[in-house]
Design a protein around this nucleic acid. Sequence first.
DNA 1: GAGCAACTTGACCGAACGGTCAATCTTGTT
DNA 2: AACAAGATTGACCGTTCGGTCAAGTTGCTC
Lengths: 223, 223
Amino acid sequence: MARKEAQTLPTGGRAWQRQQRIGHILAAAERVFAEAGFEGASMSGLAAAADLPKANLHYYFGTKEALYTALLDSILTLWLSATDSIRPENDPAEALTAYIRAKMHWSRTRPHASKVFANEVLHGAPYLGSYLAGELRALVQEKSRVLEGWIAEGRMEPVDPPHLFFAIWAMTQTYADFEAQIRAVLDRPELTAQDHAQGTDLVLRLVLKGCGLRFSEGKRLGE
Amino acid sequence: MARKEAQTLPTGGRAWQRQQRIGHILAAAERVFAEAGFEGASMSGLAAAADLPKANLHYYFGTKEALYTALLDSILTLWLSATDSIRPENDPAEALTAYIRAKMHWSRTRPHASKVFANEVLHGAPYLGSYLAGELRALVQEKSRVLEGWIAEGRMEPVDPPHLFFAIWAMTQTYADFEAQIRAVLDRPELTAQDHAQGTDLVLRLVLKGCGLRFSEGKRLGE
DNA sequence: GAGCAACTTGACCGAACGGTCAATCTTGTT
DNA sequence: AACAAGATTGACCGTTCGGTCAAGTTGCTC
């Protein structure tokens, strides 16, 4: 799956307007696909969410499947960028803290994107299978080697790196994907910034202490 | 949502055969709804999976929605039973270990049930909303008081109990719900018993050490 | 074994689905 | 101002959807 980024286009031009429309449609589609899933979303529903005629969506994307994969594609760009802090020369506690905070922040600010991804994987990743087995797997292997290096140097306790990633993904994304459950249990009309802060604290606590690293409650980077 | 259990029926009787059929249809529906979601599953697909004519499913359940909610209902019975070990008089480490092992075992043996539940919550829990806000919320409040008791007695470190439950649910259920992702990253045709054992070890490590409790790798109850 | 309720099922229905298309309007270029 | 390429859209199409129904079969009761 190729991922190309829009280079800076002269504002107001024909191609620029095209990018605007496509971005507008994808933003609406993210909401609809997140709430209804691929099968549950209808082209007329997607069109209504974008406030455009259905035929217009077909003009830009051809098929529902193409619109969906274009959306997945745009989401993956975000997905891969959060592991930057995990590098051999960094401090393990600071690197993991930064990674977890980034994932939690992403769950808070882009819950729909997380849900679209979750729905795709939940149903067997029919469109994302090759990405998972390719780019994601390679990324996990690379970052796992970094963790193994830290373990070998005695800078953290021996934990299985891939499974640690699974645990971190699960705990952080649950605040987006299973938000309905968390809201119900906490009896909130919607999750507050404080709920997310408490969740972040707990995830940091479990991961850092689980890896034998120091953890101090409520700590922010730089304190 | 009422939950009634089949009392022992005389084998081979009229009512007994009816229960058999219903159980057979629900078992097939669990697979189909897990793989396709509510909207993605079709009545003809459900009928094919159960190897019965479509009209026969309508005879027993009336509508697709009724079949789906009957399935959810049967799943919830399992869901609520795993927290039994969390009682004030038990040892915190042993209670949490038993709970996590139960949840992990359930992810391994009933992955489809987990996926159906996950799909429902992911899309806003339209049918499960009242259960989440009712029975589940009450259960979490009750068990949270147990944890708070342990914390007050100094038997574990202060962690936010509801968020701890969210974390445990997320980490354990991820081995069922996001199995496609884990399989891809680990490069497996399917998850092995050892993969689950390593996952269990990691979840136990994070939770026990995160709560300031002792953790020894590979430990089983009674060792 | 007659009668009846429970069950089974192929054929069918209106609605909604994803997708197509030709007619029309807009816009950058010359 | 003229023109071509791009963009817009209402109307339409074949398929599949969830659901219904009537005709037929089965099995329990008396």
